[in-house]
Amino acid sequence: MQSVLGKVIGPTKVEVHDLNGRVALVTGGALGIGFEVSRAFALAGARVIMVNRKEEQGDDAINKIKSEKADAQVEWKHCDMGNLAEVREVFSKIRESEERLDLLILSAGINTNQYGEDADGIDRHFGVNWLGHFYVCNQLWPLLRKTSKMPNTPAPRVIFEASEVHRMAPSNVHFGSLEELNNPDIDGTQLYARTKLAMILGAKYGLVKKVIEPNGDHIYALSVHPGAVNTAMQQQWKDAYPGITGKLLTAAMLFVGRNPEQGSYSALWAATAPEIEEKNMNGHYFNDPGTPGKESSQASDPNLGAALWDLSTRLIKQKLGEDALVDWNATA
Rank of each mutant, 00 (worst) to 15 (best):
C137Y: 04
N138K: 06
N138P: 05
N138R: 02
Q139I: 07
Q139W: 00
L140H: 00
L140T: 03
L140P: 06
L140F: 03
W141P: 04
W141Q: 05
W141R: 05
W141K: 03
W141G: 01
P142E: 12
P142I: 00
L143W: 01
L143P: 08
L143E: 04
L144W: 00
L144S: 00
R145H: 07
R145Q: 11
R145L: 07
K146P: 08
K146T: 06
T147G: 01
T147D: 05
T147A: 06
T147N: 04
S148E: 09
S148F: 04
S148D: 05
K149S: 09
K149Q: 15
K149I: 08
K149A: 08
K149Y: 11
M150K: 09
N152F: 13
N152E: 15
N152T: 09
N152C: 10
T153F: 12
T153R: 13
T153I: 09
P154Y: 06
P154G: 10
A155F: 10
A155S: 14
A155R: 07
P156S: 04
R157V: 05
R157P: 01
R157C: 02
R157M: 07
R157E: 03
V158E: 02
V158Q: 02
I159E: 00
I159G: 01
I159Y: 03
F160C: 01
F160S: 01
F160A: 02
F160D: 01
E161R: 05
E161I: 09
E161W: 06
E161K: 06
E161G: 08
A162D: 02
A162N: 01
A162L: 01
S163K: 00
E164R: 12
V165T: 13
V165Y: 11
H166W: 07
H166V: 04
H166D: 04
H166N: 06
H166A: 03
H166R: 07
R167H: 13
M168D: 15
M168K: 15
A169E: 05
A169H: 03
A169N: 03
P170F: 11
S171D: 14
N172C: 04
N172F: 08
N172T: 11
V173L: 07
V173A: 03
V173N: 00
H174P: 13
F175I: 08
G176W: 13
G176A: 14
G176F: 09
S177P: 11
S177K: 13
S177I: 10
L178E: 11
L178F: 09
L178C: 09
L178K: 05
L178R: 05
E179W: 12
E179L: 14
E179S: 13
E180S: 03
L181S: 03
L181M: 13
N182M: 05
N182S: 06
N182Q: 08
N183L: 12
N183V: 10
N183E: 11
N183I: 10
N183W: 14
P184T: 14
P184E: 11
P184D: 15
D185Q: 15
I186M: 15
I186T: 11
I186Y: 01
I186W: 02
I186G: 01
D187M: 10
D187N: 15
D187K: 04
G188H: 00
G188E: 09
T189C: 12
T189I: 13
